[in-house]
Amino acid sequence: MEALALQGGFSDASVEAALAFRAVMRAMARPGTVEHVAGAVPPAPLSAAAGVVMLTLCDPGTPVHLAGEADCAAVRDWITFHTGAPLVGRERAAFAVGTWPDLLPLEGYPMGLAEYPDRSATLIVELNVLEARGARLTGPGIAREVALSLPETVAFQANAARYPLGLDFVLTCGDRLAALPRTTRVEAN
């Protein structure tokens, strides 16, 4: 294991994880809201925000799928060292991380069960742009409507149509993140 893998974790785990969780929770509760997070310096190609989310939520109990370019030795070592999460194929993933094209198609991930819709994957989608313009979002957590730069709309609409089953998304870009739970209704603008 490279020495690099040992670096870039939280320096004060209980406080940094608490702050990061609050940001992720606000994002998940208010789809489209962009939050800043800090504390993780993961190896490329992971964004700081994706690293923070994984340090905050992943552990030996959460199988992680690394999609496409994210599946490299540096990232594998870093996640193993800092979280202990087992690395798995998409069909077993509790979390998956990668760019939108690398994560597709969405059909392969656990969508939850009728009696346990919570047993579904959360996808951490690495984006080059994350801003409050583009697709129109409505639904729980949104007072009227908000706009968010999504990589596409059709896949998210198909995901929402499976409700209460479905995937939930954390969209990351640099040190910023937003979230898109399965309840959000997405329309192209």
Partner: peptide, 25 residues
């Protein structure tokens, strides 16, 4: 901090996020 160990907090935090994603479930 806040009594619970970090692994327990992570488990609860994951449950909270899924709860927000499936309101009322």
């Amino acid at each position: 901090f806040a009594y619970l160990d970090e692994q327990t907090k992570r488990m609860i935090r994951r449950a909270i996020l899924k709860a927000l994603a499936i309101p009322g479930y």
